[in-house]
C-alpha cells in the first residue's frame, strides 16, 4: 500500500468522523443530504459483498466494517434520532435516488467486470459512488449558510477522491514488472474505476473553488448557483 492510498483512506475516514462529530455534538444534521448518505450505505453494502469470502488484509476488513457501520449509523441518526431528524433539510434534499441508482445499475449490467451477481454489484457500487455526492452538492447550493463542519466534511470527501487518483497513477507506474506494460494499461484508462473516479473528482472541482476562496477571504462558505 502506498502513501497516497493510505492518505486517501485516512481522509475518507476523517470525513466520516467529522460528520459523526457534527451530528453527535451539535445534535444537528442541517446541510447534510440524507439521499447521499443512503446512497453511500448502498455503495458499501454492494461493494463489500465479498467481505467474508475474499480476504485481502486485516486492515481492509476492519476498514470495510468501519465504513459499513458508520454509514448505517449516520443514516440511522438522520432518519430516527428524535432530535437530529428534526434538523434535516427535507424540503431542500429533493434529489431522487433512482435518478442515480438506475443508470448506475444499467451501466453495471452493460459493462460488468465479470458476469455474476457479486461482480455486477461491485461494478454498480463503483459507478454509484462516483455520483452519490450529487444530492449533497445540490443541497449545498440551496443552503444559504454552510457551517464549517459540513464544509470540511465535503472538502475531506473530495480530498479522498483526489488522493485515490494519485494512488492509481502511482500504482500504474510503480507496480508493473514489465517496463512497457504501462503503455498497454494506459489504453485501458477508460475502464470502470478510473473513469468513475475522474468523474467523481471533477464533480468536486466547483466546490473546491468556493471552499478555497472562502478560506482565503476568511468568509463563511457559500455556494452561488
Amino acid at each position: 500500500m502506498n502513501l497516497f492510498r493510505l492518505a486517501g483512506d485516512m481522509t475518507h475516514l476523517l470525513s466520516i468522523v467529522v460528520l459523526l462529530l457534527k451530528i453527535r455534538t451539535t445534535k444537528s444534521c442541517a446541510g447534510i443530504s440524507l439521499k447521499t448518505q443512503e446512497l453511500y450505505a448502498l455503495v458499501f453494502v454492494t461493494r463489500y459483498l465479498d467481505l467474508f469470502s475474499r480476504y485481502v488484509s486485516f486492515y481492509n476488513s476492519v476498514m470495510k466494517l468501519v465504513f459499513l457501520g458508520t454509514s448505517f449509523a449516520i443514516v440511522w441518526y438522520m432518519r430516527y434520532h428524535k432530535v437530529v431528524k428534526q434538523t434535516y433539510n427535507k424540503d431542500e434534499d429533493t434529489f431522487k435516488h433512482y435518478f442515480l441508482v438506475l443508470p448506475s445499475f444499467v451501466l453495471a449490467l452493460l459493462i460488468p467486470h465479470a458476469f455474476n451477481t457479486v461482480e455486477i454489484l461491485w461494478t454498480f457500487s463503483i459507478y454509484l459512488e462516483a455520483v452519490a455526492i450529487l444530492p449533497q452538492l445540490v443541497l449545498l447550493q440551496r443552503s444559504r449558510n454552510i457551517d464549517n463542519l459540513t464544509g470540511n466534511y465535503v472538502f475531506l470527501l473530495g480530498g479522498y477522491r483526489v488522493l485515490y487518483l494519485f494512488n492509481w497513477v502511482y500504482r500504474l507506474f510503480m507496480e508493473e514488472n514489465h517496463k512497457m506494460r504501462w503503455i498497454r494499461d494506459f489504453v485501458e484508462i477508460l475502464n470502470t474505476a478510473w473513469m468513475s473516479g475522474l468523474v467523481q473528482t471533477a464533480l468536486y472541482a466547483d466546490f473546491f473553488y468556493y471552499y478555497i476562496k472562502s478560506w482565503k477571504n476568511r468568509e463563511k462558505l457559500k455556494l452561488t448557483a
Binding site: W168, L172, A193
Partner: peptide, 10 residues
C-alpha cells in the same frame, strides 16, 4: 489489469 488493481482497495 487495472480492474484487479482496485479490487484490493476500499
Amino acid at each position: 489489469c487495472l480492474q484487479e488493481h482496485v479490487k484490493d482497495e476500499l
